[in-house]
Design a protein around this nucleic acid. Structure first.
Length: 201
DNA sequence: GTAGTGATTTTCT
DNA sequence: GAAAATCACTACA
């Protein structure tokens, strides 16, 4: 009846083929109960990275310490630093020893907007809220995510996804952004009705 | 409104 | 030593 108090997604959601998880993750809510306070947002853009067949994936070809979380259990986080200044946040998918993940690229702010502005001073004055999270680096900065949040459990921890039944717009698919290899793979998924995408389509 | 380029540090070769 | 799943700033239309 009212068992839907916590709509937190379970381990089974992540323990599936990565492309299915990536598509289903559009429209879901991400919640982060940080020491700063509570953040939440609606996910509108992601990309899939699958080590086995994807030359753009960090885990492609070799197994290094940086991408070790990708080989771990589904339902964990993978956070890494990029270009020396920004972090990117991933959801690990597939079973253990299968290196795959979904990169969170953009979201629409819901709760904690004031905190996001505090964390992203350069965006605080820009009018629309939908600039706070419309890029993978911006998302991590506005949420205050850093290397401490690597390899966390997304079912038991302070960061998790929750279901938002019914509110998914039209899902679009395209090639991925910002990579040099594997650009022919259409593994970017997004809500084409959202105003908070990282790029135009 | 769009296009081009510098910043900055971790990780791997 | 070079590259990297990016962003913000500047110039120009």
């Amino acid at each position: 009846m009212k068992a839907v108090k916590s709509r937190k997604l379970s381990r089974e959601f992540y323990d599936r083929p990565t492309l299915e998880v990536a598509r289903d993750i559009i429209g879901k809510g991400i919640v982060f109960n940080s020491p700063q306070g509570r953040f939440s947002a609606r996910i509108v853009e992601v990309e899939a990275y699958i080590g086995k067949t994807d030359p753009a994936c960090h885990a492609f070809g070799r197994r290094t310490s940086r991408c070790e979380p990708l080989y771990g259990n589904p339902g964990y986080s993978y956070v890494y630093m990029i270009y020396g200044m920004y972090y990117c946040f991933n959801f690990v998918t597939e079973s253990k020893d299968e290196a795959a993940a979904v990169l969170l690229r953009a979201a629409e702010p819901e709760v904690g907007i004031e905190l996001m502005r505090d964390n992203s001073p350069s965006l605080a004055n820009s009018r629309p809220e939908n600039r706070l999270l419309n890029g993978p680096g911006k998302f991590c900065r506005s949420f205050g995510i850093n290397s401490q949040h690597n390899c966390l459990d997304l079912i038991e921890g302070e960061i998790y996804l929750e279901d938002r039944s019914g509110k998914v717009g039209q899902i679009g698919v395209s090639e991925r952004i910002g990579i040099a290899k594997g650009i022919d793979l259409p593994w970017r998924f997004f809500d084409s009705t959202s105003q908070s995408l990282s790029r135009k389509v």
